[in-house]
Structure formats: C-alpha cells, structure tokens
Amino acid sequence: MTSANLVEIDNVNFAYDSQRTILRGINMTIPQGKVVAIMGGSGCGKTTLLRLIGGQIKPTSGAVRVAGQTVHELKEDGLYALRRKMGMLFQFGALFTDMSVFDNVAFQMREHTDLPEEMIRDLVLMKLHAVGLRGAHRLMPSELSGGMARRVALARAIALDPMLIMYDEPFAGLDPISLGVIGQLIRTLNDALGATSILVTHDIMESLKIVDYVYFVSEGVIVAEGTADEIRASKMPFVHQFVNGEPDGPVPFQYPAPDYATDLQGNGRA
C-alpha cells in the first residue's frame, strides 16, 4: 500500500476557527514516483494542504498519511525524522538571506549529517549543477534574480535526496524562460531522484505539460480530478473555464486574475 501511494489524504477537514472552514472532506492519493498538481484559485486552501502534509498544522478531523505514517499523530522527533525525507520549495524561495547560495544548499547537510566539509562541497556543487547554478555558489541571495533564487531553493530542497518534494506556487512571478526552466527541472529531478512531487499552482498551462495527475480544489472541496489529458479534454464547466482561462464562467471569483468589478465587490464585502 505504501509502495503504491506515498501520500494519502483521508477525509480531511481543516478550519482555523469555527467560522472559517478552509478544507472540507478532502480525499487524495498521491502515487509513488508521480508528479501531481493541486490547482485552484488563490485562497482555496492549496497551501494549507501542503502544510498539512508537512505537519506544520494539524487537521481538524481526518488523517494525512505519508509513507504509511499518520502525520498529526507523530511526536516531534518522528515528525522531524519524516521531514528530513521531504523537500519543500516555498513560493518565493525563502532562502536564508544571511547565508551565501552555497551555505543555503549546504544547510541541511550540515544540520543533519556529520559529513566532512569536502564531501559537503562536492554534494552542494552537484546539486547546484543540477539546477544550472554551480557558477553562482558564492553569491548572496540578494544578488540573485527571482528565477535564480527559485532554482537555488530547489537545489536546497533536494539537498538530502528527499522522497517527497512539495512545490508551493513554483511558477509565480517568473518570466517565460525561467518558467520553462523550472517546469523542466521539476519533472527531470523527480524522475532522476525517483521521488514523488506535489505541485500547488494556478498556472495550468505550464503544469499540464509536466504533471501526471491533477486535482482541482475550489472553496475547500475537490471539484475535479484526472490525468493531464483528461483535464484538457474535460467538459466540466469549471475545468473548461480554468484550462482556457475564460473570464466568465461558473466560478468567476476563482479565476486567477479576477476582473476589476469582482475585485471591488470582494473588497467591499471584506
């Protein structure tokens, strides 16, 4: 069972308080070795799902199992042991600004292993080479462009060869070239490391090129799921609207760039 599905999300509900329910009855399975995308508009609870998998928050009810372990039942030691096998790419990279690119990638190796410094150097350069930034290892994060920072963060996320890599909005705010580079890296690194990847994104065109399976989340529930081809061919109004980026459809507020009038209304209510 664990060999087939690395992550299982079983009827999960999550709410910060009684008024604001973020997730309702989510069921997901993420098979070993696949790249799975979770899509939906901003604020629909995608990032919350990643936090649940990483054990940073506990579900209100239901269970998240990673590699057969129920995440929210783990003690701190167990949780940290599990997290060592996970890598996460944060939305804007979240590089440690007081450390060089090299030290950022070396961070986990130094924290969690007793490897000699020469070996760490080789490993770091290998990871940086994989994302094409071996030449930048002396730079500080403030000297990097957005796309480069994202790639360094990716190198850092795979530093300990994780079994599960999570990406929080890996495409946000990137130029088309960087977008393509990151997309390719996600796929090739996943296959090269034999890892499993979860992508949280609203960039449908880029994701459909690389993912195996897609979940659509809207207002805390899964509204559609399927393989990339099924999604492209889907006749469901919501998916159709999302894939083609139509401004008007069944869920106008879910459109990634809401139109002016909706935006104003949304602000007025808040």
Partner: peptide, 9 residues
Amino acid sequence: SAMEMMAVN
C-alpha cells in the same frame, strides 16, 4: 517555515 520543513527547529 522553510527551516521547520527542513526538520530544523
């Protein structure tokens, strides 16, 4: 958060 996810408190 990133540090926490890297199993460093």
